[in-house]
Every structure is written in structure tokens, then in C-alpha cells.
Write a protein that binds this DNA or RNA. Structure first.
Lengths: 339, 339
DNA sequence: TCATCCTGTCGAACCGGTTCGACAGGAGTT
DNA sequence: AACTCCTGTCGAACCGGTTCGACAGGATGA
């Protein structure tokens, strides 16, 4: 390993001078700069990250905490990981990715040993045990997902309440009076996935305001169960004119299911949904949907975190940010009103 | 931050004694051990990772290099990431995940600055530019995927050649004489995904040996194109009795496509495929398939890497390991022979 | 001409661990 | 009683950077 001392000797200067050339924190004559640059290139010098972290107490690494739930639809997670990684790198940070099941302990292990400068928490639940831990360590953190207690917390999520309203409004405007809502699975609720009830409650309330009958069901996440459950739901409510789906596994399987039943969209049944843009493209879903911008969420989260790291923890006030969703009309809803 | 010095002072011993208690590398009296343990707990001491890395030149971090190709079916990648992460953690290592497009530079950046103790390269192509870079840095690395030049390289992959033979044999034993093969998209070949031709060539050769007519086509990766291309292929070869699919996006869409065409499996058409177990479960695919154990690949790769890190680079000879695939019969092939 | 300021560089201390050699003192040997 | 050996602990050096204060020497100003 070639050290800063080797470079200094080669260039005939002291170690500190090399350091100042590297950081630019003090003026160094152009001639010396050139000699040092040459030495660096000739020797192939790269600063030792550990030593630098020790001296500066900055690691230029962000901790990304994610958990895989066996009962969850996996492809969704990746859509957040990529923008987090890319945004971090654009600011000179690397990503330490931890999938450990014990989140709180992980935060302390990583944080107390100073392996990272900050944390990104993915898929945060209502009473996520990681949130209090985050307050105990001295690195800042940002959440993707909304906990119940948002006091002094930096969080970002899609505005699921608004999303539900937009979709109900969309159906109401086209004269639908009875709709079926399929939400994420019930165990996601139990786990505390607040987006489930934020969307569900808002949809029910909005429907009630219009006098629309709405039948809310919990969907399934695993292949065969999805199909069975969906068929049962469709059997139960033959008069519903529209389907509102907030469940990736269900919407991915829906084209097949409807085809099997001989149901045409939108002639026989209208369908609206909520999924991320990437997801829709991946499965080329033909449904009118509110699209959650996973990229935007990940990108914004990391940008905010880095700003907070660099400007000091207290300079940037913590903030809960709800991203406004937008609807993309793909013509999967029928207008029942006389024109 | 509480340091080892604080602990030492509290326990009334020297810093080195605390260090020896932590590492167990020298005998320390039980009484002293207890005092130090108490001090550690009272003060909440956690060793600084940077300092430790500096002193030991060990970071206990592995670099995981992966690239996302926009034209690729994303869910597959995640199946490798999880076992890599879990296996690493089980051995006390964390994962630095880098998605940078410039692999060679990343390897040098991360490796030369001593941020990691070793590398895991995912989705390695035939002439992957990262492989030569891996030879230039002083950390060992392990590949998942097979490069053309396997000289002095530690790699692991599924035995795609054998997989193809197993599937052709399976169809041959049931009397099929004309089959259609759908491989991964053509741009994957251009990129150097050697698994494409390892599987394809072996299938064609094996079919030829039996005198089976085989029509090989490149599949698509994106939703709508998948369906279009598949329909076209089916139109072109109406007499084929079996379909052999080596493409995640195609096999995921196949139930829908076949249903739309009114084709029943296996009565009208036999289907065999190659996909990973997790993938099949995710989409509850009902096809007889050779299953690639992504978990096993990731797990084995990391285990080998860690052994090599700990036993010294030369102690463990580099090795190319091809995992033998196994077929799971789900009854999607019809027996055409008179019984 | 001398005090003052600025520029460029150096040496030393420091970050927080690990590890080696030294050594005190008690146990075991002869 | 003198010697050797073993156990437990300490001090100092080291890992490879950063940063602060000091200072030499030339430029500037009065």
C-alpha cells in the first residue's frame, strides 16, 4: 500500500503539504502542486478510507436498512434501492446495505461504531422500532414510509390519502355507484404498514361522501392465493362496476384472472389501481392508475439526508413530506353516465 | 463518543488491557475482565470501525458490485442480493453495495482505498471488464456468472449446459420431435451474458443428437414486446409440440398468453423452463422446470470469498464451480409415446 | 529601513484502535 | 535459596490520514 508519506517523500515535501494539495484547504504553490500530482500518479496513491474516517470522523458512507418479508412482493423493494444508491454516489457517498432482521440493534452496531454518516430506512411501519433507535445514535436518518409518531423525524412518503381520493373521484365522475377495493394483505396491516389504512380509510370516506357503495377486501401476496382470493371477491360482488386495486401482486395477476373469467376491461368492469411507474412498465399493465414515483422518493430522501449531514444536524428542520400522486389515464374505466 | 481510553480509565487499567479483553488474544485475569466488562456496559462503548480498520487493515466489509440494466427483468437480481447479504452477516461482514456503471473504476476506488476486504461480482459477462480490474487490486473477489477467461478466477454459476441437456432429454423421453426454444433477449448476448449461449448451444446440440427439430428464438424482456414476440413465435411453428423457455419475463407472461390463445398445457402444448425456485413461487408458475438455486449460488460465493480472505489469498486455490441443476416435474409435459 | 502582512511549508499532535516487547511477582524446581 | 517459568499488565509504537500553530522569507507600506 502506498501512503501519503510515500508521496511526500517522492515529491520532497512534508505529509501535511500533500494533504493540503489533496483537500485544497490551504494555498500551495503551483510548482509544488504539480510535483505532488506527479508523485501521486506515478505511485498510484489512493487515500486510505479508514485513516481518513478516523481523522475526520466522516466515512462518506450511508447506511441503507431494508427488510425482506417472505410474504411480500419482492420486486417493489428494488425500485427504491436504485435511486438511493445513485443519488448517494452522485454526492460522493457509498451505500452500506444491511438486511438484518433486528433493525434497532443494527442501527446501534453501525452507528455507534461510526461506519456511516447517516441512515436511510426503507419501508417504515407505523410503530417501527427502528425509529426510536435512530434518535439514540448520533447520525441523522431519513425515513421512507410514515411512522405514527412523526415528531422530530425526517420522513418522505407518497400521499396515499390523496391518491385514494383521486381514484374515487375518477370513478365517481364516470357514474360508478358500487366498487370493490382490494388493499394489501392483512398481515401488512398487522405489521404496521400505515399506507394500507391511509389509502383504505380515505377511499371509504370519499366513497361515503358520494354515496358510493364500497367493499374493501384484503388481498394476497403469493401467487396462487392471489388468484383464488380475487375470484372469490369477484363472485361475491357481481354488481360492482369498478375495481380499485392497491396491491402489486394482485394487479400483476389481474389480466390473467379477468381473462379467465371472460371479463373485458373496461366494457364489463372498470379497473383503477395504485402502483409505481416502473412496476407498471415491467408488467405492461394497461390500467388507469395513480403512479407512485419510487425514484423520486428515493432520490429526495437521500438528498435531504446528505444536506442534513453536511449542514449539521440541527440546521435543517426535520420535515414530513408527502409526495402528491398523479393519475395516468389508460382508458380502463368506462363512463356510465349518459353523454 | 466513548473511546477505549475512557473504558480503560473507568476500569483502572491500560488501553491495551481493554483491547486484549475485547479480542481475547492474551490472558487477562477474571477479576479484571469483569471490571472492564462493567465499564464497557456502563459507558456504552463500541469500538470505532475506522480506527480498527486502520490498525488491523481489516474492514469486515465486502463490496457487492451489481449493475442494473434498464432492459433487464429486475426481480431476478434481488434473489442474489439477499443470500449474499445474509451469509456475509452470519460471518460478521457487512455489505457495501455499489451500482455504479463503471465497474473497473469502482473496484479500484473501493479496493485501493481499503474500504472492503473482498468483492462479490454479480451478473458477470463473458468479457467482463471488471475481471481484469479485480486482478489489479489486492483484495480477493468471487464471481457469480462465468467469464470467458477463467484463468485464476474464483467463480460460481449454474451449469446451464447440463440444464439444457436435462430439459431436452425430458422432452425426448416423452416423444417430442419438434420444439421451440425461447432464450433471453438478443442484447443480453451482445452484452456477453454467456449463460444465453451456454444453454442455447447445448440445447441445439442435444436436440440434433436425437434428431429433434428445434427452433431457437430470442425472447424479449419488456412487457408488451414479450407478448407480441411470443405470439408471433407460436404462429410461426404451429406443429411444435413443446416449448422450452429460458427467459423470466416470457415465462411470467406465458400463462396469460397461452390462455388468450386458448392453448391448454400440457394437452395442446408441453412447456418446460429454466428459472429460479423463488421466481417460480413468486409467480406460482405451474411449469416443469430446471430450477437454479439463487440462494445456493449467493451463499456459496460469499462463503468461498470469506474463507479466502481469512486464510490468505493463495491458500485457497481459485476454482470455477458449476452448480448441477435439478428438474422439478410439475406435469406440464405430455407423453406423446404410445404407452 | 524597519515593522507588518501574506504566502507557502513544516513539524507535531491527534483521531482510536492493536500489538509487541518488557517486566513484576508468584509458583514450581532442584 | 537461587533459578526458571508462567501469568497478567503496562507503555510505547504504529496504522495513515488531517489540522493547528509556527515560521521563513518575500512583498508591501509608512
Amino acid at each position: 500500500m502506498v501512503t501519503i508519506g510515500d508521496v511526500a517523500r517522492r515529491a520532497g515535501v512534508s505529509r501535511s503539504t500533500v494533504s493540503y494539495v489533496l483537500s485544497g484547504k490551504r494555498a500551495i504553490s503551483v510548482a509544488t502542486q504539480h510535483r505532488i500530482q506527479e508523485a501521486i500518479e506515478e505511485l498510484g496513491f489512493t487515500p486510505n478510507a479508514g485513516a481518513r474516517a478516523l481523522a475526520t470522523s466522516q466515512t462518506m458512507v450511508l447506511g441503507l436498512l431494508l427488510q425482506f418479508h417472505a410474504d411480500e412482493f419482492a420486486p417493489a423493494m428494488l425500485q427504491y434501492v436504485l435511486p438511493v444508491s445513485e443519488t448517494a454516489r452522485a454526492h460522493g457517498y457509498d451505500i452500506l446495505m444491511v438486511t438484518d432482521a433486528d433493525g434497532p440493534r443494527t442501527i446501534h452496531r453501525i452507528g455507534d461504531s461510526n461506519m456511516v454518516d447517516g441512515f436511510v430506512l426503507l419501508d417504515v411501519t407505523a410503530d417501527d422500532p427502528r425509529v426510536p433507535s435512530l434518535r439514540e445514535v448520533h447520525q441523522p436518518g431519513v425515513l421512507i414510509g410514515l411512522p405514527r409518531d412523526t415528531h422530530e423525524v425526517d420522513a418522505i412518503d407518497l400521499d396515499f390519502t390523496e391518491a385514494a381520493r383521486i381514484l374515487v373521484d375518477h370513478l365517481h365522475e364516470r357514474g360508478h355507484r358500487e366498487i370493490v377495493l382490494v388493499t394489501p394483505p392483512h398481515h401488512v396491516v398487522e405489521r404496521g404498514g400505515s399506507y394500507v389504512w391511509r389509502f383504505r380509510d380515505a377511499a371509504i370516506e370519499r366513497a361515503a361522501r358520494y354515496g358510493i357503495r364500497i367493499h374493501a377486501h384484503y388481498g394476497e401476496a403469493q401467487g396462487s392465493a392471489v388468484r383464488r382470493s380475487m375470484n372469490q371477491i369477484l363472485d361475491t360482488w357481481p354488481d360492482a362496476t369498478a375495481l380499485m386495486v392497491h396491491n402489486d401482486a394482485t394487479i400483476a395477476a389481474l389480466p390473467t384472472i379477468l381473462h379467465e373469467r371472460g371479463i373485458r376491461v373496461p366494457d364489463d368492469l372498470s379497473v383503477v389501481s395504485l402502483y409505481s411507474r416502473d412496476f407498471g412498465e415491467e408488467f405492461s399493465l394497461p390500467f388507469t392508475a395513480v403512479e407512485s414515483a419510487a425514484y423520486e422518493l428515493g432520490h429526495t430522501a437521500v438528498s435531504r439526508l446528505i444536506e442534513r449531514i453536511q449542514r449539521g444536524r440541527e440546521s435543517v428542520p426535520p420535515q414530513v413530506q408527502l409526495i402528491a400522486p398523479a393519475i395516468t389515464d389508460r382508458g380502463s374505466t368506462r363512463n356510465l353516465l349518459p353523454s
